[in-house]
C-alpha cells in the first residue's frame, strides 16, 4: 500500500491558536484532525504520520523549522506528501508552500497543498508546488480535500494527470502537450479558423497560448493647482507605529495600516519605525520621515504650497508582495482618500 504523510499547523492540530503559533515541529503516527478527512478520501493509501508545526515558528525561523521537519521525516518518507488545506490563512499558506517545496526537493516525492487564490502562498509557490484552488475557510474543508485527494489518488495509482485546469490546481507555468480526440473539430486547422471567426465577431475565444501582458499604469497628469490640493501619503516602506498594531507582515504583506498624523509635525523615531524586511532599516528607524516625509509636507502646508495634508498616512510592505495583493490593498485604501477629497497622493517607496 502507498503511504502518505500530512502536514498541518497548530490550529488544525487542535493544540491552540495564536498562543501556540510558535509551536516547534513534531510528528505523530496516524491522522490528526482534518487529516482524517484526507485518509477517508484516499482510495488505496495510508496516512502513516501527521506533522505539526506552528505557523509563526515556520514563518520566523523557517530554516530551522524546515530542517527539523525534514529530519522528522527521515525513516518515514512516504510516496506522497500533503500539506493543508491552508484556505486563506496567509501564514499557513506560506508554511504549506515552504514545506512542500522542501520535501519535494529533498526526497524527490510529489507534494500537494490547497489554498484560496488570495492566499499569498499561491503566488509565492505556484510555480514550484502543485497548489489546488481552495475555499476561503475551513467550512470548505470537505470540498477542498475531495479535489486534492481525487488528484492524489490518480497520482498514486499512476493514472495520467489531465492538466492544471481539469484537476483544479493553479497553473505552474509548466506547459506540456495534450492529445485531443481524433475528429475534424479538434484539428489545429479547424480550431484556428473557428478561433478567427469568433475573434471577428467579438465573441469570446480562448487562446491556447496566453502571452502575459505587461501591465502598465499610465502616469497621472500633473496636478494643475497644488495650492488647493489635498495631499495624502501612502507607502510600501513599512513605516508603522512602533508596536505594529495592524501586524503588517515584514514580507509578502497582505495587510495595511492607516495612522493618524493630525497634530504631528514629524514622525518621531521610536514612535514610528519600519517593519520592512527588504532594506536596511537603520536610516528609516532613525528618521521615519525619510520614507513618509511628514516634516517636509508640513512645511509645504505652512508655505501654502499645498492646500492641506490628509490627516492619515497609509502603510504596507512591498517586498515579496504580489501584484494581486497590492492591487487589493490599494482598492481598500482608495475609499478613505476619496472620502476626504484627496486630489494627490505621494507614494513613498524605498
Amino acid at each position: 500500500m502507498k503511504t502518505v504523510v500530512c502536514y498541518i499547523n497548530q490550529f488544525f492540530a487542535g493544540i491552540g491558536g495564536e498562543e501556540k503559533a510558535y509551536q516547534e515541529p513534531y510528528i505523530q503516527e496516524g491522522c490528526v484532525g482534518p487529516v482524517q478527512a484526507i485518509q477517508a478520501a484516499l482510495e488505496d493509501a495510508q496516512v502513516t504520520h501527521t506533522l505539526v508545526c506552528g505557523d509563526n515558528y515556520m514563518g520566523s525561523d523557517t530554516e530551522k523549522a524546515v530542517a527539523r521537519i525534514l529530519e522528522l521525516l527521515e525513516g518515514h518518507v512516504p510516496d506522497l506528501f500533503i500539506a493543508g488545506p491552508a484556505f486563506q490563512a496567509g501564514r499557513y499558506g506560506l508554511a504549506c508552500g515552504t514545506i512542500c517545496q522542501a520535501v519535494q526537493e529533498k526526497f524527490s516525492i510529489p507534494a500537494l497543498t490547497s489554498m484560496h487564490p488570495e492566499n499569498p502562498g499561491v503566488e509565492m509557490f505556484r510555480q514550484k508546488v502543485i497548489i489546488f484552488q481552495g475555499g476561503k475557510g475551513a467550512v470548505k474543508m470537505r470540498a477542498d480535500v475531495q479535489t486534492m485527494i481525487r488528484f492524489a489518488n490518480k497520482l498514486l495509482s499512476g493514472q495520467p494527470n489531465e492538466g492544471a485546469e481539469a484537476e483544479g490546481y493553479f497553473p505552474r507555468g509548466c506547459r506540456h502537450e495534450k492529445f485531443l480526440e481524433d475528429k475534424r473539430e479538434n484539428t489545429a486547422a479547424y480550431r484556428g479558423v473557428q478561433m478567427l471567426i469568433r475573434k471577428m465577431h467579438g465573441q469570446p475565444y480562448r487562446t491556447e497560448l496566453a502571452i502575459p501582458a505587461p501591465e502598465q499604469v499610465p502616469i497621472a497628469p500633473a496636478v494643475s493647482d497644488l495650492s488647493h490640493a489635498v495631499v495624502a501619503m501612502v507607502t510600501s516602506g513599512g513605516i508603522v507605529p512602533s508596536d505594529n498594531p495592524d501586524r503588517i507582515q515584514s514580507a509578502s504583506a497582505t495587510r495595511w495600516g492607516r495612522y493618524d498624523i493630525s497634530g504631528m509635525e514629524r514622525l518621531e523615531a521610536g514612535v514610528f519605525k519600519t517593519i520592512h524586511a527588504g532594506f536596511d532599516p537603520t536610516a528609516a528607524n532613525a528618521d521615519p520621515n525619510v520614507v513618509v516625509p511628514l516634516d517636509a509636507m508640513r512645511a509645504y502646508e505652512k508655505e501654502g504650497k499645498i492646500g492641506r495634508l490628509h490627516p492619515y498616512f497609509y502603510s504596507t510592505v512591498g517586498t515579496g508582495t504580489t501584484e494581486a495583493e497590492a492591487r487589493r490593498m490599494a482598492q481598500e485604501i482608495i475609499p478613505h482618500l476619496v472620502a476626504d477629497g484627496v486630489t494627490a497622493v505621494i507614494l513613498g517607496s524605498t
Binding site: 494527470n161 492538466g163 492544471a164 485546469e165 481539469a166 497553473p171 505552474r172 507555468g173 509548466c174 506547459r175 506540456h176 502537450e177 495534450k178 492529445f179 485531443l180 480526440e181 481524433d182 479538434n186 484539428t187 489545429a188 486547422a189 479547424y190 480550431r191 484556428g192 491556447e208 497560448l209
Partner: peptide, 14 residues
C-alpha cells in the same frame, strides 16, 4: 506537430 493544421494536439498547463 502537424503545424499545417492536421495536429490533434494542444498545449495545457500541468
Amino acid at each position: 506537430d502537424h503545424i499545417s493544421g492536421l495536429s490533434l494536439k494542444t498545449m495545457a498547463e500541468f
